[in-house]
């Protein structure tokens, strides 16, 4: 077995159920808010994803933000890296920098196309695809070389994860792709947001034989408006009517303070119920909790899951 360089991988290997969170650097030169969110999340998660310009918006570099989060918030980063903006030279270079400065986890992905973003005329690079990025990391870590075989001075200490989408339709293509990435040496999967336990179960069953730990993604929404926007704008995510209905039900009150509490409680119940059920029925390494300005729910869901699991054990 390969050496564990990060807390994320150590905990997964020790059999501990892990929680990861997510923060998204903005188009800003300030890191304060980022650090604050990371600190708050850090109390509940083992590591925190730092996004790489999602929806192809030119924001602060995920690598710079990952380093800030690790050094100033003391939270381990999972640095997201897309193939969209960098060729293999720049990717190799960033991976060297990441390893040198203590970033131990990267999550590779192709990345939303520039045409969807805020600089829509930018050149789509995609010199490598996400499978080839897995190979790049493996070569750097295992062989101590870049893709062309040039030797690297010093050891590269990085774990590489990949994304998967349980909502994908057709799912079989997605599974075939993940199998190849597992064979190439990807070390963990974090998935796109899942709201439906059957969708998650079907996915976990399909990837079960690949021998790669899976963190199922969830996306608690702090209002039905946000949930509707996600359903509308992110076609790769399926938001079931049932969940929307429960959110609307929780919002159906005049008193604002108790609305917030009811929505939080509803999300806590919905997702901790789903995750603890999955832990019981499938092989699941952890859960990746995303959210749009909804950091406060992360701890509640994590605590809720643990509570439900300990009830079951007793």
């Amino acid at each position: 077995m390969r050496e564990a360089f990060s807390r994320l991988i150590s905990e997964i290997r020790s059999g501990k159920f892990v929680y990861t969170g997510e923060i998204a650097p903005g188009k800003t030169t300030r890191v304060e808010t980022l650090i604050e969110s990371a600190k708050a999340l850090g109390r509940h998660v083992v590591a925190c994803n730092v996004t790489d310009n999602p929806r192809a918006r030119a924001n602060m570099s995920s690598l710079a933000a990952s380093i800030a989060v690790q050094e100033r918030a003391g939270v381990e980063a999972i640095c997201q890296m897309t193939a969209r903006d960098r060729n293999r030279i720049a990717l190799t270079s960033d991976l060297l920098g990441a390893s040198a400065l203590g970033v131990r986890n990267v999550l590779v992905m192709s990345g939303d196309h520039p045409s969807l973003g805020d600089n829509p005329s930018a050149m789509p690079v995609y010199d490598l695809d996400s499978a080839q990025m897995v190979e790049l990391v493996r070569r750097m870590v295992d062989d101590g070389t870049d893709l062309a075989g040039n030797r690297i001075d010093g050891k590269v200490r990085i774990h590489v994860g990949v994304t998967g989408n349980p909502n994908a339709d057709p799912l079989e293509v997605e599974i075939a792709k993940l199998e190849r990435k597992a064979q190439l040496g990807a070390e963990f999967i974090q998935t796109q947001a899942v709201f439906d336990i059957e969708v998650a179960e079907r996915f976990l069953e399909a990837v079960d034989g690949f021998g790669i730990p899976v963190l199922i993604g969830i996306l608690p929404c702090r209002s039905s408006r946000i949930a509707e926007q996600i359903a509308k704008n992110v076609p790769g995510i399926r938001v079931p009517e049932e969940y929307l209905g429960m959110l609307r039900g929780a919002e159906d009150l005049n008193d604002q303070a108790s609305v917030e509490e009811r929505v939080d409680l509803m999300n806590e119940e919905y997702f901790s119920g789903m995750v603890s059920e999955l832990r019981r029925t499938a092989r699941l390494a952890g859960v990746h909790i995303m959210g749009v300005a909804y950091g406060r729910i992360v701890g509640r869901i994590a605590d809720g899951v643990e509570r439900k699991m300990s009830c079951r054990v007793r």
């Binding site: 193939a83 293509v173 796109q192 076609p235």
Partner: peptide, 17 residues
């Protein structure tokens, strides 16, 4: 995206993002 190893996460029901 000129990918060489299968579809990206942007395909939905066989259509491109």
């Amino acid at each position: 995206k000129g990918l060489l190893n299968g579809p990206c996460g942007g395909q939905v029901q066989g259509k491109c993002e």
